[in-house]
Design a protein around this nucleic acid. Structure first.
Length: 447
RNA sequence: GUGGGUAUAGCUCAGUUGGUUAGAGCGCUGGAUUGUGGUUCCAGAGGUCGCCGGUUCAAAUCCGGUUAUUCACCCCA
């Protein structure tokens, strides 16, 4: 007999974990709702054509494809099959794939329902996504994303609003964080000033690693990507800048760079009067790998913990363009629920929840008492108390052990004496004390 | 896609230069206690040593392959 298992990169969640995870999702959801974002859900599967080509060449490889139903092989591309060319074969045997993120399905959703949507459209979405990546610590093939986006407005008010959302969620979860802001236009300005506009992407990929490899590592990466030494020196100089005002002077030669600085200034202006619990700061070294971002970019890091970012996002000017709807700007951020969970576990921030899973367990000595206990159980539940009855009047030891394992704080024991007198044996599992009281006073005590 | 680690009881893991009947802790079952759990004591059940092959008188142990899993890199949340 082989042991059962689950696919690589997937996980089971026990009751305790689900309760904790729901605590995170509920907190996030309640903040989203307060800021007037609306929930949507999209299918687990999308048409493969919706997904392919949206995440780069690398991303296409990481898409989970769903095999067509029926006799899919008879319809397969014979040539590709003979060549054993998987990439070429895929389109003829798979027309669907699993969701890779929530942003692309959202763009598809907006385009499909554009006539039913009032813009600006503010939506949030908390669903699972799948990636056929090699799993490693904190990275899975199946995981949740919590996205909140607004499309159909260029207003920088939303950058400020999303910053407030980040601040409020992490304050509610009691995780001290650092919220970092930057603007892709500033990065474009840097490339401009350094004279390497055509190597902009290479530059951002290198800068993005600053946290991990340090300034020397970035310089190394830059020269490996064939960026001239003079440009590297210029980039290094600008990356030392911490104040937005200083940066403006250094980027004066670049129109787009100035624009980026001004945008950020306006965002900070919006935020100036708001009461934030966490540090929000400009960080010129923040780059973010994703290339569809065109304006402000966000990243959140937990303080006092060794952990990558637990949230990120940015503005994208033409998200829906690939699906045929031009000139719709969007801005959104994402919460890394799995990492937030790990951080909260490490900092022991989860509230005690075990008690509500079972408050009172009835234990019966014989069949007659069991029927009696079942009637009591109904009354207790009617009073809104989370209660249960052990399913058979078996040995006390076994029933008590179950109460203990479930961490029930109270137990009611019912046998002949109790049925005769109407006074039930009510036991406090923590102190071990027990008293003889009627059902009504038990209900009164636990309500 | 690239590179490394690991695989022994339900779980976490020991297991000597290759040598009788492969161990521990936890968990499980029973008992001490026929109306009392969490503590304690006693007893018991539970293993194709991932799989296939090779070396050897002899393999959990050495070698090759294979599968699973895990960590790191690329990339990403």
């Amino acid at each position: 007999m082989s042991k059962p298992s689950i696919p690589k990169g997937t996980r089971d969640f026990g009751p305790e974990e689900v309760i904790k995870r729901n605590y995170i999702f509920d907190t996030i959801r309640s903040v989203f709702t307060k800021y007037a974002y609306q929930p949507i859900e999209t299918p687990t599967m999308e048409n493969l054509s919706t997904l392919t080509g949206k995440y780069g060449e690398e991303g296409d490889k990481l898409l989970f494809k769903v095999l067509n139903n029926g006799d899919f092989l008879s319809k397969a591309n014979a040539e590709a099959l003979a060549e054993k060319n998987s990439a070429k074969l895929v389109s003829s045997i798979s027309k669907r794939g699993l969701r890779y993120d929530l942003t692309v399905p959202f763009a598809r959703f907006v385009v499909m329902h554009q006539n039913d949507i009032s813009f600006p459209f503010k939506r949030y979405q908390i669903q699972r996504v799948w990636r056929a990546d090699r799993p490693q610590k904190g990275r899975y093939q199946e995981f949740y994303q919590c996205d909140v986006d607004v499309v159909g407005s260029n207003s920088l008010m939303y950058e400020a609003e999303l910053t407030q959302i980040y601040d409020e969620v992490f304050a509610a979860l009691k995780i001290p964080v650092e919220i970092k802001l930057n603007n892709r236009k500033i990065l474009a300005g840097i490339a401009d000033v350094a004279g390497i506009s055509d190597q902009f992407v290479d530059m951002t990929v290198a800068i993005d690693k600053l946290d991990k490899v340090g300034m020397d590592g970035v310089k190394n990466e830059l020269s490996k990507r064939e960026i001239p030494a003079a440009a590297i020196a210029k980039i290094e100089e600008i990356l030392q800048t911490t104040a937005l005002a200083d940066l403006k002077a250094k980027l004066s030669a670049s129109e787009v760079g100035i624009k980026g600085v001004e945008e950020l200034e306006q965002v900070f202006d919006y935020l100036s009067s708001s009461d934030l619990s966490n540090e929000v700061q400009f960080d010129v070294t923040l780059a973010r790998g994703l290339n569809y971002y065109t304006g402000c970019i966000f990243e959140v890091k937990a303080k006092n913990v060794q952990m990558g970012s637990i949230g990120g996002g940015g503005r994208y000017d033409d998200l829906t363009g690939i699906f045929g709807l031009k000139n719709v700007s969007g801005v959104g951020v994402s919460f890394g629920a799995e990492r937030i969970y790990d951080v909260m576990e490490e900092l022991q921030l989860f509230p005690a929840t075990a008690a509500d899973s079972l408050k009172l367990l009835f234990i019966a000595f014989d069949a007659e008492a069991h029927a009696y206990a079942f009637r009591c159980l109904g009354k207790v539940r009617q009073a809104g108390i989370t209660a249960d009855l052990y399913p058979e009047p078996t040995k006390l030891k076994k029933q008590m052990k179950y109460a203990n394992d479930r961490r029930a704080p109270y137990v009611v024991l019912i046998g002949g004496n109790e049925m005769e007198s109407g006074l039930l044996t009510f036991k406090n599992m923590e102190s071990g004390e027990q008293t003889s009281v009627d059902l009504e006073s038990i209900i009164a005590q636990l309500s």
